[in-house]
């Protein structure tokens, strides 16, 4: 995917805002600082424990804006429906989109719908676009990350990926894990509003914690060190990862983020985040190393070290 971005999309659309490669673009219009972000959702199955494609699509874009330090104000949504997708399912999706938008304080103000013949799509695909008002005054981006910043993870890893995999019903395993799908704007904007010096924010999505940290490390030109023992993973997710041969660092999340914060503000930042239910499990998991290097180094549970790599391709289960 990152190769596609580098070789196809960036050269085709080259401009300064896109070139920053953040979750969304921040621009100034008539004295207002606006953030804009767009994302497509193709989750299979569309309904899963803890959420559905509708709440995912709204929260995902609200969260991408939050990672720019912005509060979502307006949302657009387009739907690609496969012929025969049940109307009552669509109603459930739109109801949960409305709920999620209301909770985020945003309005869904424009949209589009296309119906394609059976077999030309997989039930329902949703794309959302959001525009938000930036509340942060300092620039929040990988380029702002400084040596010595601490890395805070907002909660335990892997719930969304495991919930969706189990909901597909092809594993023959039932799981009590619910997706962590949630709007992250409240804790993020509270953190920024508290005056803590936040250099970078990133919500963890498909590639998990590993991809987010590797991308930030590369973009900031600094090594990031994290401690496996400090990274929270619940027993159910650990068990599923052990069974399926997955690394929790690579499993998808939809309600977690990392915040890079000046080390002097660590305690205050943790207190602010822990005051919000979606980030009550926030922990410091690592620190940013010197400039000139890049890569994520993990201190393992037993005291060794290893590099953390981005997930390459599809997560394939192991044989034995």
């Amino acid at each position: 995917m990152s190769r596609l971005i580098e070789q196809v999309f960036l050269p085709a659309f080259a401009n300064e805002l896109l070139g920053r490669r953040h979750d969304g673009a921040v621009m100034e219009v008539a004295g207002l600082r606006l953030a804009m972000s767009t994302d497509a959702y193709v989750v299979d199955p569309p309904f899963f424990p803890g959420g559905d494609i509708g709440s995912l699509a709204v929260n995902g874009t609200v969260n991408d804006l939050a990672m720019c330090g912005a509060r979502a104000v307006w949302l657009g949504a387009s739907f690609i429906l496969e012929e025969g997708f049940p109307l009552e399912s669509l109603t459930r999706v739109t109801a949960s989109m409305a709920d999620a938008a209301r909770a985020a304080g945003a309005q869904l103000v424009t949209g589009d719908t296309k119906v394609v013949p059976r077999g030309k799509a997989d039930g329902i695909f949703v794309t959302t676009t959001g525009v938000g008002l930036v509340e942060a005054t300092a620039e929040i981006s990988p380029a702002s990350v400084r040596t010595g910043d601490i890395v805070i993870l907002s909660g335990d890893l892997g719930r969304h990926g495991i919930a969706v995999m189990a909901a597909r019903g092809t594993l023959g395993i039932r799981s009590a894990v619910e997706s962590d799908c949630a709007a992250l704007a409240e804790p993020v904007l509270a953190l920024i509003g508290s005056g803590c010096r936040v250099s970078c924010l990133r919500d963890l999505t498909r590639g998990g914690l590993a991809s987010a940290l590797v991308e930030i490390s590369e973009a900031s030109g600094r090594e990031i060190g994290i401690d496996e023992a400090a990274i929270p993973v619940c027993d159910e997710v650990t068990a599923m990862c052990e069974l399926l041969g997955l690394d929790p660092l690579h499993v998808a999340n939809e309600g977690r983020f990392v915040a890079f914060v000046n080390a002097e503000d660590a305690d205050r930042a943790l207190a602010v985040l822990r005051g919000h239910p979606v980030s009550a499990g926030a922990h410091v998991i690592g620190t940013v190393g010197n400039a000139g290097g890049s890569g994520v180094v993990l201190r393992t549970l037993v005291g060794g070290q290893r590099m953390v790599d981005m997930l390459s391709g599809e997560q394939l289960p192991r044989i034995c």
Binding site: G295, M307, C320
Partner: peptide, 20 residues
């Protein structure tokens, strides 16, 4: 290729940053 393969394990966990 294989997650059990020694080369893949070294690639994932041992690659020095400058070779990334």
């Amino acid at each position: 290729v294989s997650s059990e393969g020694a080369c893949a394990a070294y690639y994932r966990y041992r690659r020095s940053p400058e070779r990334a």
